[in-house]
Design a protein around this nucleic acid. Structure first.
Lengths: 229, 229
DNA sequence: TTTGATCAATTTGTGTACAACGTTGGCGTC
DNA sequence: GACGCCAACGTTGTACACAAATTGATCAAA
C-alpha cells in the first residue's frame, strides 16, 4: 500500500513508515466514505486501533488537517471536513491544469510491468461495470490514479496532484450520490477513458494521455454540475 | 493550508494562530538563511523562545518537515534540509507553470491599496539596489511574492506556490552566493521586472503579469545554472 | 599510532496526566 | 410550557517524564 515511499536514506525510516501507513489508511477511509463528511474521529480510538498512543496519532491527524481532510476543534472533536462547493470548484480547475502538466513535466515512459498492471485494472474495471458498488468503484479509481501518477517523474507535481485528488474525489462522490448521478454510466465512461489511455500509451504519447485524463476530469465535473441544477 | 487560512468561525482560532505564527517565523528564518541548510534546530530552545513546550513546537516542526524545509532524525536532531539539485530543478519547472496559471485561474483585479503597496515596494527596491544586503534583498523578495500572490483568487494554487517558493528560494540563494552570482545585477533585473509588472497591471492584463513573472523566474534559474558551469 | 569497543551525553519519539474548552442534559424559575 | 443557568462530561491542547537512538569522546589493546 505504501509501496513507493522511497524514504531516501536508510532503515531509520521505519518510524516514519508507520506514520505514513496510518496516514494512508485513514485517508483511504475518508475517501471511501467509511468516514463520511461530518464524521467525528476519536484520537484515542484510532490510537488504540493502530496499537499506539495519542501522540503519534495526533501527528497523523495534524497532517490530515494540513491537507484539508479533517478539522480539529478544541473541546469538540476531530471532524471530517464537509463539502465546500466554492473550494471544490477551485480545486477542480487546478487539478485540470496540473493533470495536463503530467504530460509535459518529466514524462516517464512506462515499462512492461506498468502496461501489465494497467491491463489488469482495465479488465477488473470491465467486470465491475455491472456488479460494482460505489465503494468498489472508488477503490478502483484510487488504484488507477496511483498508477497513472507514475507517468510523471516530477515529484512535487505528484504530491500536489495526490493531495488534490483525495480532497476532491470524496466530495465529488458524496455530491454524485446525493444528486443521484447514474454511477453505472460513470463506470462505463471511465472504462472508455482507460481504453483510450491504453491506446495513447501504445503510441508512446504521454501528452495525449494527460489530455485524455484532463478531458475526462472536466467532463465528470460538468456532468455533476449539470445534475445539481 | 498555510497562513491566510481564514480561520472560518470565531476566536477559537487563537490557538491555531499561535501555531501559524511560529511556523511562519521559523520558515522565514530558514528562507533568510538565519538557519542555513544543515543547521541543527533544537526543539527545546525554540519552544522556550516562543514561550511554550516541546509538544506544540514539535507540531510546527512536523509541518515544516512535511513541507520539506527540515528533516527530523531520531537521536540526531532536526536539520534544515540541504540543496538537492535534481529536486530543485523539478520544483522550478513546476513553479514556472503554476506561476503562469495565476493569470488564468481566478485572476483578481487589484484594488487601489494593492497598487499603493506595490509602488511602495518598488520605491524600497530602488533604494536597495546599491546599498542592500543579500538578506534585505531576500526579505524584500518575500514581501513582493506575498503581494503578487494575491493576484489569483485560487486558494489551493496559492498554497502550492507558497510552498514551492519557500522550498526553492533559499536553495537558489545559497547556490547564488556560492557561485558568486552578481547579486546587485540580480537586484536591478528584479527592479525592472517590478516596473514591467506595474505597467501590465495598469493595462489590467493579469495574464501578462503572470507571464512576466514566469519569464523572470526562468531567466533567474538559467543565470544560476550557467554560472555553476 | 591506529583501531576498536564501551559509555556518557544529547536528541527525537512515545506515553500519560492534567488544563482548556465546548457541548449537552437536567434543573429551576418565570 | 418555555427559557435560562449550571454542572458534569467528553474532546482537543499542553506539559512533562521516560524510552529509543545516534553521536562523540575516552580508553585500552594491538
Amino acid at each position: 500500500m505504501t509501496s513507493s515511499t522511497a524514504t531516501s536514506s536508510d532503515v531509520a525510516g521505519s518510524v516514519r513508515d508507520r506514520h505514513d501507513a496510518m496516514h494512508a489508511e485513514i485517508r483511504r477511509r475518508i475517501c471511501l466514505l467509511d468516514y463520511p463528511p461530518g464524521q467525528r474521529l476519536s484520537e484515542v480510538s484510532l490510537a488504540e486501533e493502530f496499537g499506539t498512543s495519542r501522540t503519534p496519532m495526533r501527528r497523523v491527524l495534524a497532517r490530515l488537517e494540513d491537507e484539508g481532510l479533517v478539522q480539529s476543534l478544541h473541546g469538540v472533536g476531530t471532524l471530517v471536513t464537509d463539502a465546500d462547493i466554492a473550494a471544490l470548484e477551485q480545486e477542480y480547475h487546478l487539478r485540470l491544469e496540473l493533470t495536463e502538466l503530467t504530460g509535459r513535466l518529466d514524462p516517464v515512459m512506462p515499462d512492461g510491468a506498468f502496461i501489465t498492471e494497467l491491463d489488469r485494472l482495465i479488465t477488473r474495471g470491465a467486470d465491475m461495470i455491472e456488479a460494482g458498488t460505489p465503494r468498489e468503484f472508488t477503490a478502483f479509481d484510487m488504484e488507477v490514479f496511483q498508477l497513472l501518477l507514475q507517468l510523471t517523474g516530477n515529484l512535487p507535481l505528484r504530491d500536489v496532484l495526490e493531495r488534490l485528488y483525495y480532497k476532491t474525489k470524496r466530495i465529488w462522490l458524496t455530491a454524485a450520490i446525493e444528486a443521484q448521478l447514474d454511477l453505472h454510466q460513470e463506470f462505463r465512461i471511465f472504462h472508455h477513458e482507460l481504453e483510450a489511455i491504453r491506446i495513447a500509451l501504445q503510441s508512446g504519447d504521454l501528452d495525449a494521455v494527460a489530455h485524455i485524463q484532463r478531458a475526462h476530469i472536466s467532463m465528470s465535473f460538468q456532468r455533476l454540475r449539470k445534475k445539481r441544477d
